[in-house]
Amino acid sequence: MNHFEVFGLAPVLELDVKALEQRHRALSLELHPDRLVAADAKARLSALEKTAALNDAFKVLKDPVRRAFYVLRLKGVDLESEGGAARAAMPMAFLEEVMERRERLEALKARGELAQARALADDVAREQQAALERAKAALTSDDVAEATHQLGRVRYYARFIEEVEAFEEEASS
């Protein structure tokens, strides 16, 4: 069963997270050990496994970025694995752009320029959002190559933002 099927859903890019949360709670209750005191060991084990699958599915589906990566995976491209195809999908100009941004951030970190680093991260976050929207459009029209490329961008941007967040945390501690 894939993550969508766990919730009785068809693979979709947009979903109501509130409703998903309610469904998650309801399904968790059904599988709760307290309800299975009378059940045999096999049934209890199966309930445990289902709970684990339910929680995994929830974690992925509630997050729009992870959800998009997962829909891409269902279309045959696993960006979590180390496929050469996925690597080749990133254009050189993009890698150069990320490298340049990373170097700029490194210089800002060395000088303790928090505000400027935050401004960089905000720019990147906007581009990440735009790339995610393009990825979703590509997934909808079944353009797997374009979706792979755009989600690759999303991944690099996410790393960049994490780097800024780590810097901010370090500075505030």
């Binding site: 979590e80 690597r87 999908a89 996410a158």
Partner: peptide, 8 residues
Amino acid sequence: LVGAPACG
């Protein structure tokens, strides 16, 4: 210049 989208 090389990159791995799997990990960024």
